[in-house]
Amino acid sequence: MNGLLNPAELDALRLSLAVAARSVAFSLPLAVLIAWVLTRTRFFGRMLLDAFVHLPLVLPPVAVGYTLLLLFGARGPIGGWLRAHFGIELAFTTAGAALATAVMTFPLLVRAIRLSLDNVDPGLEAAARTLGAGPVDRFFSVTLPLMLPGVLAGAVTAFAAGLGEFGAVITFAANIPGVTRTLPLALYTAMQSPHGDAMALHLAGLSFLLGLLGLLAAELLVRRVRRLVGR
């Protein structure tokens, strides 16, 4: 690979993988929770929460990035608080790029998990109840294992999509080489520079390859896990 990619390209690839991985790792538990709430509970404002979760699908990514900047920027209400209490900086950092990616891929994750949760028979959960399992126990011993195929498929798809998140990342985390310049940002930069054609081609090809691999991996994983949990 070293022969094929120059150090800048390699950096972008490494950074993209790291950002996508962190984004999925942080958003997965929350996505499972939100999917469960949306599927298994009835409360006032459920539709509003549903719509809110899906907003990044329909908003311009730049608008999402700008909103993040307003909220999580150094002077934003959340960003300022995080900085004062924990010394955490999100804007213009790798962590910030991961946050922007997480927000953008969140709907994908929630949708995949909800689909799998819809397929879990509530009758099995009722049976677990009669066998003495409380709510948390029930979730981890019955519900989660049965929705695992969907959770993993969602995670891999969100990871593959996260590798290529552009608008929100560049708006919130800027385009800093080695810090926030992920694959699509490097590709964009290469296209803007006078002698970047070869690099742009490389990076575009790489993105195709990664996307394809991600989708195939998701499918294979789902099949294996489905067999494992007997569905």
Binding site: L124, A126, A127, G132, R138, R231
Partner: peptide, 20 residues
């Protein structure tokens, strides 16, 4: 008393075995 603390076994019409 919550279902899980009643200690009442229930055999449903469909077996409802845990597939995993």
């Amino acid at each position: 008393v919550p279902v899980e603390r009643r200690r009442i076994g229930y055999v449903f019409q469909d077996p409802r075995l845990f597939p995993h």
